[in-house]
Amino acid sequence: MTEPTLPPLPERPAEEVSRDTASGAGIAGVDDTGVPRLVGDLDDIGRGFLSALFDLSFTRFITRRLASVFYLVGLVAIGIAFIATFLWGLISGIGSLWWNVGGGIALILSTLIVVPVVAFLAVVVLRFIIESGVALVAIAENTERTAANTEHD
């Protein structure tokens, strides 16, 4: 039985790094645990939203931050539309039974089948559109990062 390999130890202990950081001679971006913290776009996810929103040069993206909000609002709108259409279809179908029994039954059955299918497809399309936008922004961010890290001859 082989012994599991342990991960390599850091070059300097966390205590030494935190002491150096506290004295001003430390490494930028390292907290008192010795673990580098996120710096850059990932660090700014919760901050600077308004400045990014009103960035007229469009150098910072807000799509990833707002994707979940748009998805939630879309789901609520689809849910309200589903309930309203479903109830309207059932009430109209029941009302139609007085004048046209076959038409009323057809309207009730089509409401029971079509409205849930259309609502499901609407959720799928909403998710697809939001994921497409987020993927497009991720491609743009990765391309920008790649271009910044590529040597220019």
Score class of each variant (00 low, 15 high):
81 A>P: 00
149 N>M: 05
72 L>Q: 06
91 I>L: 15
125 V>R: 08
81 A>D: 03
150 T>Y: 04
24 G>H: 12
130 I>Y: 09
53 L>N: 00
28 A>K: 14
44 D>C: 05
80 I>F: 09
42 L>R: 08
98 W>K: 11
131 E>L: 13
130 I>Q: 05
68 S>P: 09
25 A>F: 13
46 G>L: 11
69 V>Q: 05
153 D>L: 06
122 A>V: 02
52 A>P: 01
99 W>F: 13
101 V>W: 12
51 S>H: 10
126 L>G: 07
106 A>H: 01
148 A>H: 07
66 L>P: 00
101 V>D: 07
64 R>C: 07
40 G>V: 01
153 D>S: 06
66 L>D: 03
47 R>Q: 06
38 L>G: 08
30 V>D: 04
84 A>F: 07
35 V>N: 12
105 I>S: 00
101 V>K: 14
15 E>W: 10
61 F>A: 11
137 V>W: 04
99 W>T: 14
56 L>G: 11
56 L>R: 12
98 W>N: 10
137 V>A: 14
108 I>V: 11
39 V>C: 08
56 L>N: 02
10 P>Y: 05
58 F>I: 07
111 T>Q: 01
19 R>G: 09
47 R>N: 07
143 T>W: 10
63 T>P: 01
103 G>I: 09
67 A>G: 01
112 L>Y: 01
148 A>I: 08
151 E>R: 12
60 R>N: 02
5 T>W: 06
36 P>N: 04
89 G>S: 05
117 V>G: 13
138 A>H: 15
104 G>R: 10
62 I>N: 13
48 G>E: 03
133 G>Q: 15
75 L>R: 11
70 F>W: 15
18 S>R: 15
69 V>P: 03
134 V>W: 11
70 F>H: 09
51 S>Q: 13
10 P>E: 06
133 G>V: 13
29 G>D: 05
67 A>P: 02
74 G>R: 00
16 E>K: 10
100 N>S: 14
57 S>L: 05
78 I>F: 01
17 V>K: 13
57 S>E: 06
54 F>P: 00
57 S>A: 07
14 A>C: 04
146 T>A: 14
5 T>K: 12
79 G>I: 00
71 Y>F: 10
13 P>I: 10
51 S>K: 11
3 E>Y: 07
126 L>K: 07
